[in-house]
Simulated assay, not measured.
Amino acid sequence: MIERPRPVADGENGNYRLLRTIVLVGLMGAGKTSVGKRVAARLGVPFIDSDSEIEIAAGMTIPEIFASYGEPDFRDGERKVIARLLTRPPCILATGGGAFIEAQTRAEIKEHATSVWLRAEVETLWQRVRGKPGRPLLDAPNPRAKLEALNDLRAPFYALADVTVDSTRDASHEKMTDRIIEAVLRHDAGHAGQAPTLEVLEK
């Protein structure tokens, strides 16, 4: 689902213009949606959740897609939806936890966007997702152990993201927003030969 940002006061967006989509990757509970919405509002651009867009395209919820078709078919549909979303004007795009693991999806993101891994400790993730519905991959006798196994499996792929930002339990959403923008600016500065993600505007 695309969410339009709330109106921002003059200068509240930090005097930046988003030139390249920022794609948030990481495990469930990392804050991709909650923080992503605030980054979008700060920069005055749309926020898009790829899982919501998949549900709209399929006319089914994510758990229903998993139950009816299995994970491989879900990943194929996810790849197509994300590729389509990457053709839109720059936005903040939050992806499902497994999206960045797929090589083709990862390549599409690399070509068209700047990826940001929201990295968090497993215990932090667990405290955020425990008891919440709609997590088919945690439908297991020991969901915390499953989450830890997913982290072990996926972390090496998330580490391929352009930028890594630590999502800590003590960081407010506003602090995380600051961290992401600052990290992207550092990435731009370190890759001067590439098209920047953020343009710094005159005050």
Rank of each mutant, 00 (worst) to 15 (best):
I54T: 00
I62C: 05
L93E: 07
P89R: 11
E71F: 05
S52F: 08
S52E: 15
P90H: 06
R79L: 11
T95C: 13
G77W: 01
R75P: 13
G77M: 11
I54W: 11
D51L: 11
A83P: 08
E55Y: 07
K80S: 13
A58V: 06
L86I: 09
G77Y: 01
R84C: 02
D73E: 15
L86E: 07
M60P: 01
L93W: 10
E78D: 07
G70E: 04
I92Y: 14
M60K: 15
D51C: 04
F66S: 12
A67L: 08
F66H: 12
I82T: 12
L93Q: 04
Y69F: 10
I62L: 03
P72Y: 05
T87S: 13
S52T: 11
A83I: 00
A57V: 06
D73L: 15
E78V: 04
T87N: 10
S52R: 12
I56H: 09
F74Y: 10
E55F: 02
A94T: 03
Y69L: 11
G59F: 14
R79S: 09
E55P: 09
T61D: 07
D76N: 06
A58S: 10
V81T: 13
L85N: 05
M60I: 02
P90Q: 09
I62H: 03
K80I: 03
R75M: 10
P63H: 07
A67T: 10
I65F: 03
I54K: 07
A67K: 11
E78K: 06
R75C: 09
R75Q: 08
R84H: 13
E78I: 09
P63Y: 08
